[in-house]
Amino acid sequence: MDTLAEALVNALKLLRDMDPALLETVGLTLQVTGAALVIALIIGIPTGAAIGLSPGVRGAGFLIPLIYTGMGLPPVAVGLFVYLLLSNQGPLGGLDWLFTPTGMVLAQTIIAFPLVVGLTMAAVRGVDAQLPVQLRALGATRRQTALTTLVEARMGVTAAVVAAFGSIISEVGAVMLVGGNIEGRTRVLTTAIVLETRKGNFALALALGLILLALAFVANFAFYRLQVRRGGGS
């Protein structure tokens, strides 16, 4: 098919020429998704570990289904929620975050957070139930117990990072609504793909899609290397 071949050639050309507009879009994509991922991990991993390590936590029967539901939040619904939150008429309108990268980070953090919590919780619960007792018996503090359990559950925790990253770098609904797809300011790869498709520039759109895929692969490769290294090879 012509369009596909053309797209491949186009993608390579764009990369070879280091097209400044493209670099800007790629840069913003990484910035927004990276910031959202880091924030979601910083608050999500401890939360997931805490829930995973306290099996009899009060309200778990309600909390856990809630987290599982959150893991499937439709990005466009989150985008709408954040839009209304940040709109001039909204409760946080005074922040002036609508149509800014900061607002996009907020929306993507909300999408990633339940994924991180849910998968971290599952990973921590997947390790030997006797491990925390054993660690305490060896003299670990609660903090050391949680950290060691997370390291033991590193496969699952890496899966949480990968799933969260994959879900936000590829989502378009929230960044489109909250960011507004402003050229040079809030345009990211996914919204650029939608735009180029609507303009009928299928080849360019596909090229952008390939770049997105390549970015995701590089990031996942890095996550995997990190996991293997932390695990001392096993």
Binding site: G180, N181, I182, R187, T191
Partner: peptide, 10 residues
């Protein structure tokens, strides 16, 4: 000058 790349409604 803000170039949005969005539909009329948006």
């Amino acid at each position: 000058y803000q170039s949005l790349g969005q539909g009329m409604g948006a």
